[in-house]
């Protein structure tokens, strides 16, 4: 219908790439709250894939459960919607079966670091060529704002009404320590930067992690009185410091700002898991 109108007016408008990649007719409207940052992550992902020239058939998106876990439901490529925390395990299987495909996972902080924490560190340890996008809103959004492994100390959640007493994980530090060979962080305020970080992660061979700080104004913002979507996203600008040529990671951390953004770690020397696996297989066959 929309296309017919375009022909009729003879003013064809170039539809943005995201429209080609979305299951608009089948799966929309989406379930995210108005103002949610996940849409920015989805948009950034599609623009990054498009700019690198990937076709929809070359990309596999795997997700578990949660608000972020919904991303692949709305994307018209090869998608696998699995169980809570296990996106990386399923993705590991996909990647080993089809190393030629670009495999991505989408997880929230609860999905990736609580119930799926084990799989996260082991995927990083193997350095398997998967791009893990972790949207960190510091809370369990879908089930109603429970305390998560990234809820900052003292911040409140529906299961921590006097504030969390558990120290949170630093997703990027965890990924780096466990062996991920590309680690970056961005926030949904930095829309172009999100796209750039995802593009660099996709270009990297090995386990790449992009943590994107997002806003859950519906629960986190309301419970902690940090305002609505606009206030929370604006605050990200104040709370972030970018790693750049003049400001290295340690210097940026020393400023005390909560979110050091940019590429935090990159190791191009570490061998990638599927290649090692293939190499081992060829050697074993040669030996026979």
């Amino acid at each position: 219908m929309a296309e017919q109108t375009m022909v009729a007016t003879k003013h064809p408008v170039r539809r943005p790439a995201v429209h080609e990649w979305l299951r608009v007719k089948k799966k929309f409207p989406h379930l995210w709250c108005p103002g949610c940052g996940i849409g920015i992550v989805l948009g950034g992902t599609i623009r990054a894939l498009e700019s690198l020239g990937y076709s929809k058939d070359e990309v596999v998106m795997v997700a578990g459960i949660g608000c972020t876990g919904r991303i692949p439901v709305y994307v018209d490529c090869n998608t696998l919607h699995t169980t809570h925390g296990r996106a990386l395990s399923f993705a590991t299987g996909v990647k080993l079966a089809r190393p030629d495909l670009k495999v991505m996972t989408f997880m929230g902080d609860g999905d990736a670091l609580a119930i799926g924490g084990n799989h996260f560190i082991h995927a990083a340890r193997r350095n398997i060529d998967i791009t893990a996008i972790i949207v960190n809103n510091a809370i369990y959004g879908m089930t109603g704002g429970q305390c998560s492994p990234t809820t900052p100390l003292g911040k409140r959640a529906t299961t921590a009404v006097y504030g969390s007493v558990e120290p949170p994980f630093d997703t990027c530090e965890l990924a780096k320590s466990a062996g991920a060979s590309f680690v970056a962080r961005s926030t949904v305020y930095h829309v172009k930067h999100v796209e750039q970080m995802i593009r660099m992660a996709l270009e990297h061979k090995g386990f790449s992690v992009v943590e994107i700080i997002s806003n859950c104004h519906t629960y986190y913002g309301r419970i902690n009185m940090e305002g609505g979507a606009v206030e929370m996203v604006k605050a990200m600008r104040e709370k972030s410091i970018m790693v750049s040529e003049t400001m290295d990671y340690e210097k940026a951390r020393a400023t005390g700002k909560p979110y050091v953004i940019g590429v935090l770690h990159r190791d191009t020397e570490r061998p990638e898991y599927c290649e090692l696996y293939e190499q081992m297989m060829q050697e074993a066959i040669g030996r026979k």
Binding site: H84, Y140, M142, T143, G144, Q146, T158, T159, A160, V161
Partner: peptide
């Protein structure tokens, strides 16, 4: 938490 049982333990908390 897990839908639709989350409320039980959340109210309890």
């Amino acid at each position: 938490p897990i839908t639709p049982a989350t409320e039980i333990v959340q109210i309890y908390s």
